[in-house]
Amino acid sequence: MTAVLTWLVEPLQQEFMVRALLVSTLVSCVCGLLSCYMTLKGWALMGDAVSHAVMPGVVIAYALNLPFAVGAFVFGVGSVALIGYIKQMTRIKEDTVIGLVFTGFFALGLTLISKVRSNIDLSHILFGNVLGISSSDILQTVVISLLVLTVLVVLRKDLLLFCFDPTHARSIGLHTGVLHYLLLSMLSLAAVAGLQTVGIILVVAMLVTPGATAYLLTDRFDRMVWLSILSAVISSVAGIYWSYWMDASTAGCIVLVQTLLFLLCFLLAPRHGLLAQRRRSPRASRFPSA
């Protein structure tokens, strides 16, 4: 008992651990909520693209002494607009355009970071640095998170309808174009917030895995949101503790816990899990194509 208590309490005596836990809990709430929409809309690849595309924005913002969120937001939304434009103007398929644009932006970011003189550490951008997060970065993350949460909560039903049936949404007079870009803008902002915690490479996990995990557990959207947020927060807190005691990469530990939670649900989810499916129709699951 005392050992468990020590295990839990000792890290909290370090200020950087308390900060890291608070920031990543907040970021998990934002990403957990957003990931429901990403999962249902099928925008995982878009999340990956936006999170990589913000890199040059972050570098330029640091070099110009601007808040990094501003640069990241400009490049995140810019990449989305460019993807839409190229897709519309050519016959290239969307996933190809996404792959093309985000690698281009990411390459620009890498080149810039090697040429522009600044005190940014590449590994912090790529893999996150939640244990060493500065006060100004915390402030930015809080502002971004509150903004995204407010938008997603106020427009949650419109966004849900937009994901489910955009034709009907449009026919009753909702501006689906606005909703589309608004959701992508929120994605850019959430990617920036998530970047603080797990870095560019793994932020897509924050934007996809909690939603996918929750989707296996329920057929109700409201419950899906709460389960998604819960799994994101549990993963962040457990991941940070784990990384503290194992002295391992924080981003790696957080995402690993998320993946483990997903696997657990994949196996054991009451209705959509593998075991439940096998119990229902043992033959069908053994021969999925039959």
Partner: peptide
């Protein structure tokens, strides 16, 4: 999609 019948009709 995780919506029930009532929610779909309410979307109208």
């Amino acid at each position: 999609f995780p919506v029930n019948v009532h929610e779909v009709v309410m979307m109208g």
